[in-house]
Nucleic acid binder design. Structure first.
Lengths: 239, 239
DNA sequence: CGATTAATTGATACTTCTCAAATCCTGTGG
DNA sequence: CCACAGGATTTGAGAAGTATCAATTAATCG
């Protein structure tokens, strides 16, 4: 039997990819996917490995097959600001290529990750020749833009406590729960703080408060949302 | 002689629009612009008029012919958070239409504004049939996404003072200077604060400090950047 | 020119950050 | 599989940054 790694790295045709349904390729037919499928290559990244460096000029995009990554900018003092996460079916690197600008965020794998690399040229080929796909990417970037707008308003107007509640809910939506009910993503407290936009100690203090309030519970580094409804109230999520 | 209003509202062919060069239509030919040009209508908004309401479903997009607008979200307590501005040549409303989501930000005219309204159907028609235009919009949204990322990192990591300096520079880049050298946009201190993401009084206090430092000067509501280089240092702009 | 709204400044309270020290966990190598 | 080193987490205390409330002055618009 093939190992997981072998299996994941074997270049299956995109048509049969398990992530197809919730990816930017969802409504493309076999022939349409051929261009991409034939020119892609499979790659893997170790946990902690930097996939792309802020400021670089990527020569292609990655479609995440299995794994979890963080996209972040390095600010003054070297502090990370996490902009978003990426997981199965997500595309990364397309913003830079399409806008013809250097990469605006670094990308690091949060766990071992398998992805398909699609060279710039084949990506453009599909974009230019396939209006359906082009529209998918357009929709994708516009949705991301909407998310970014929410994040901006949240950072500007909400307290750290509200933002932390918001992020915890987001993490559950994005990565789901493991078999024990904990958030299915491994983040350090520092990374959590870097997402919320606060100091690590502040994030920890507020997590402790939320534990006292029985909104969450923790086991080591892992976090379980015990009362998502209460968290939603704290986060004051209206939209 | 025709009045300014008449002239601005007369539906000229897009081919001859003064903003064509720096708009999403820049590289389209006459025939390609025909679809848009024939179906567009010219509209005008008074200063202070709300062009689009957060949560609404726009039935078309606007291409700004002449004027200035703010895009903002209403947060808790009814406080505005300005996400970005729009001026000559900019498109507004496209994010909502392309992502098939309600409008994520309200839009209000900062001064009397003239725009071309392009119905959803003709917009989609051009997008779907003209890869060149589609790519332009894609590039546009990806650039905006980059800007949003910068704003997120800025809000999360910089002090109010740094962000204020940053916004002042952005305003000069976006709207330029008037004949006396003042920022060529009329904003209240409250709007400025709503862009920076702070309380009005805090913004005012910091403006006063910057006046003492001779980085800026003011005349009534108007602001002049006396030492942009110093402001850049304050803003700690690296990228 | 006057009414009304916006801008400004002061005083105070609150939130959040920073620095420091102690404890806990996690991944690694034996 | 277990022990251990080193990084991560946690809590405390004090400092700094911002927000809020209130009162005064200035600017704007009809």
């Amino acid at each position: 039997m093939k190992s997981l790694k072998e299996e994941l790295e074997a270049p299956i045709h995109c048509q049969f990819c398990q992530n197809k349904a919730n990816s930017a390729f969802h409504n493309l037919g076999t022939e349409e996917l051929d261009v991409v499928s034939k020119l892609k290559t499979c790659v893997s990244f170790r946990k902690g490995q930097v996939v792309m460096h802020e400021g670089a000029r990527p020569q292609g995009i990655y479609c995440i097959h299995k794994g979890k990554l963080k996209l972040y900018k390095i600010g003054t003092e070297g502090k990370e600001q996490i902009l978003r996460f990426a997981t199965n079916g997500d595309l990364i690197g397309y913003r830079s290529i399409l806008s013809d600008q250097p990469i605006s965020a670094s990308i690091t794998a949060l766990e071992d990750t398998y992805a398909c690399y699609i060279p710039k040229s084949s990506f453009f080929e599909v974009i230019e020749q396939n209006p359906k796909f082009s529209l998918n990417i357009l929709k994708l970037s516009c949705r991301e833009l909407g998310e970014a707008g929410k994040m901006i308003a949240s950072l500007a107007q909400k307290t750290v406590r509200e933002r932390l509640a918001e992020i915890l809910l987001l993490l559950q939506t994005t990565f789901g729960k493991d078999e024990e009910g904990y958030l299915d993503v491994k983040l350090t407290r520092e990374e959590l703080a870097n997402m919320v936009g606060t100091a690590t100690e502040s994030a920890i203090r507020l997590l402790s408060e939320m534990k006292e309030d029985r909104y969450i519970s923790t086991k080591g580094r892992r976090i379980k949302l015990e009362d998502p409804e209460a968290l939603r109230e704290v986060a004051a999520v209206f939209d």
